[in-house]
């Protein structure tokens, strides 16, 4: 049987849930950034699936912009990770608590 729109949406929802769970469960900055990438990809899949269902190319164009934002986010996020690691010699977000008080 051929996959329908809701199959793609379901898959996208599962991937987004995996990414969200990763952000909440893992205490490693690199893995948290990777989980954010998983969530961005789940959203991209939704855009492409809806674009295909509606017969429009706009979904793919929005995916292009999402990828640009993801690249910028990864670059800045990894730069912050490097700066934080220089300060504390740790990648555990629980050890960066100076902004709390």
């Amino acid at each position: 049987m051929t996959p329908t729109l809701s199959d793609y949406l379901m898959l996208s929802g599962v991937l987004f849930a995996i990414g969200a769970a990763g952000v909440f469960m893992r205490r490693n900055l690199i893995t948290i950034l990777l989980s954010i990438e998983i969530m961005l990809n789940a959203v991209n899949l939704t855009f492409v699936a809806f674009g295909r269902a509606l017969g429009s190319a706009d979904g793919q164009i929005i995916v292009f912009f999402v990828m640009t934002v993801a690249a910028a986010e990864a670059a800045v996020g990894l730069a912050i990770v490097i700066a934080l690691y220089r300060h504390r010699e740790s990648l555990n977000p629980d050890s960066f608590t100076v902004l709390k008080w």
């Binding site: 329908t4 379901m10 849930a17 909440f24």
Partner: peptide
Amino acid sequence: PTRFGVLLAVALVAELFWALTKGGGESGAF
């Protein structure tokens, strides 16, 4: 907090499944 993450993920999937199956039969093939 990891427990909370699991809870959130399961709730998200369950909600989505409910919404997609409840939505009716208009989501046919492309």
